[in-house]
Design a protein around this nucleic acid. Structure first.
Lengths: 186, 186
DNA sequence: GGGTACATGTAATCAGTTACATGATTTA
DNA sequence: TAAATCATGTAACTGATTACATGTACCC
């Protein structure tokens, strides 16, 4: 019964948000919300509610017939646990955990041209992600401009912009004068 | 013998970088380099080299007397594994995993004034981290301006700047007109 | 010479990942 | 009606976290 994990609060929060939910419901919601910045493998969305139910923070109800789906509801204790967590702002630092950055960090031990390819690859990844966020942002600004949760996507946008800037600068530094135009015109 | 993890490559990379190392050496190095963006608990720095040695990627040598410290060296196979990993740019996305952002995401289910306190707390955390990076950056620009690994700290700087911007904007939005100067001068 | 911090490791637990498995719908 | 995809779960493994434990050096 060790203290609750981040996953626990994600589940509690989502059940609070969405009302009674099955693990599959949670999976769906995660995939188009929190999952962008904090992924949870679907097997955890089956395992974690079981733990939370044991701890009395969720109520579990199982279908009689058919698939015997389990539906989870927030208990009062669960709601209280969520409030308590929210009331205590975390001081934990963000870890970037950027796989590309890791590869750059050790690039001295690879081949000469790895970093250029790395920068190209990473630029593509981040640009794609940035585009996704911008689109979501535009959509949310229309449909739910005031909600706090809506704001979170801006955090992603700034982060991706920083990443794009970083890799672009690296690329510029690594390919000096390479503008696509031959430097010695024939 | 499942495929190598990120931790594996961190260990391989650090041993490549630092030469023969004990787990404690690795712990020290991690704490003032990679650890800033990809932490590794020290117990892993004991466990992982054992696995890598079994896989033939590190060579293990144990002291005879005293503490019987174990020192690890890169084997040819290890060097090759590192090269191979570096040659294949990761396409995996970065996950922000910002605990504060998680709390903001679910803030609707907490108390009214949680978000303001959250923003203050997070601003402090990110400003502090930003200052650290700026200092490291200044130092590295003098001592090792060319190395690629040196560049990684800029990634951190941009990321922290984005974070500061985000939380500051949130704070501004939540405390409109609160400039420290009373709005109705007496 | 007693406390405190650094150095060095092990053990137990548990969360997370991966893989497997199968029933229900849709679609071609 | 076969194939593909969605829905719904379980099982096994293993890496990561936490806690424990002890030796050594330094400092007051």
């Amino acid at each position: 019964m060790s203290s609750l994990t981040r996953t626990s609060y994600i589940v509690l929060g989502l059940v609070a948000e969405c009302g009674p939910s099955t693990p599959y419901d949670l999976k769906q919601v995660v995939a188009r919300s929190v999952g962008y910045f904090w992924s949870v493998p679907h097997s955890q969305l089956y395992a974690e509610p079981v733990r939370l139910a044991e701890a009395g923070l969720l109520h579990e109800q199982q279908e009689e017939g058919g698939r015997r789906r389990r539906t989870y509801t927030l208990t009062d204790a669960g709601r209280e646990a969520l409030r308590a967590w929210l009331a205590e702002p975390s001081r934990a630092p963000v870890e970037l955990r950027d796989p590309g950055l890791l590869q750059l960090f050790f690039a001295d031990h690879g081949d000469r041209d790895d970093p250029v390819r790395l920068a190209h690859t990473r630029l593509a990844v981040h640009r794609e992600r940035l585009a996704t966020y911008v689109e979501i942002d535009g959509h949310l600004r229309e449909t739910a401009p005031d909600e706090l949760a809506t704001r979170t996507v801006r955090r992603g946008i700034y982060a991706e912009e920083g990443a794009v800037r970083f890799w672009q600068e690296l690329l510029d530094a690594l390919t000096p004068g390479d503008s696509g135009i031959p430097s010695q015109p024939a």
